[in-house]
Nucleic acid binder design. Structure first.
Lengths: 197, 197
DNA sequence: GCCTACGTGGCATTAACTGCCAGGAAGGCA
DNA sequence: TGCCTTCCTGGCAGTTAATGCCACGTAGGC
């Protein structure tokens, strides 16, 4: 193994240790009342190094969203070409669900995000970046025709709506303490929106 | 006139002066590169007072969203009872459009918001609060029936989708420098989402 | 045993905020 | 007119997140 791999490994260990400390402290005393200095102290590293691992305090909670965004985009791209935009996005959502944290951890994180305005904002910001990256992917799956809006408009509207439903479903799911299946909630949201009447 | 009114009046003058200075500086040199100290200096007040008028730097850009949220809620409530949830929300959106800033100012603000990730996120977060307030209003307009999702789920999904379309339309509108009608864009977004196929 | 690359900690600094306190202007009242 | 209350304002110090800089240590290649 090259030294790069060794460094990578110890880096992963450090990341997980910091993450565990941070989430524990956030759960114990709340996000706002926990300082970065405290996390660094209890994790046994300097504050300066903590900011090298996680660029911001908010990344301690929603940092691994980046990887999920990449996964989502790749999954949607790889769906069969004849699949509709809606179904391709639905398949991507499904993959993210299974690739996510263990459910009880995900529940804790979701509650933290929805209850903390600054975290919620940061989470939305990351989500917006996924949306922008998905628009060109979705544009390729649109049924064109006269009298339809511009493809860019269609793609943006569809992606934005899907994320709105994901967000709504996640919030409901967290509010019900995870007792209702998240995928079911998503399907209910989308059915409500797409059904006429 | 009581003294409260006098104070209210001079307060409004101060607010408008600060706002003008801030927006000008943001447009000239960007949001991130403009410090609160500079805005206060050019507006002729202390930094401390600026933070009393606007709780945060972000409120300088999307602070008056609060008032619009109230207006939106009242408008939707006052629509005739037989009007569908979608149409009632559409009517509310229409009213906000006419009550908004002069179009050129609104365009400038929209560009600033959509070009600055942190602002965009904060803007959406404020909007999420409107959403929460609209959900009970919308729930009263749902066509109930067996095999349908819970009313709360339906209402949340509809409201979230409408806001997603408003957001998408506004972004497209700002991207086209306001040359395309915002209401038309909104209708196109919603038609794309609601049409089957 | 050097040399380079890279991770780390300490230090100083910036920028957004917040708490505290002193002072000043507006209006009520004797 | 003079006093008192009320509210707004500015200055000052302090906290917290975040960044740049530099010096130190360590792991691997020659």
């Amino acid at each position: 193994m090259s030294m790069t791999t060794l460094w990578e490994r110890s880096r992963q260990v450090a990341v997980q240790a910091i993450l565990g400390t941070a989430v524990r402290l956030f759960a114990e005393q709340g996000y706002e009342r926990t300082t970065v200095a405290q996390i660094a102290r209890e994790a046994g590293i300097s504050q300066r190094s903590l900011f090298r691992y996680f660029g911001t305090k908010e990344d301690l909670v929603c940092g691994d969203q980046e990887a999920l965004g990449e996964l989502l985009k790749r999954t949607v791209e790889q769906q069969p070409a004849e699949m509709s935009a809606w179904d391709a996005l639905r398949a991507g959502f499904e993959v993210i669900l299974t690739a996510n944290h263990p459910p009880e951890r995900a529940l804790e994180l979701s509650r933290l995000i929805f209850d903390t305005p600054s975290l919620h904002a940061r989470y939305i910001e990351k989500r917006l970046r996924w949306q922008a990256e998905l628009v060109p992917v979705i544009r390729a799956r649109l049924s064109t025709g006269p009298g339809r809006p511009a493809p860019d408009t269609q793609a943006r509207a569809i992606v934005a709506t899907v994320f709105a439903c994901i967000d709504t479903a996640t919030e409901l799911w967290a509010g019900h303490d995870g007792r209702i299946d998240l995928a079911d909630l998503y399907d209910q949201c989308l059915a409500t929106v797409r059904d006429q009447g």
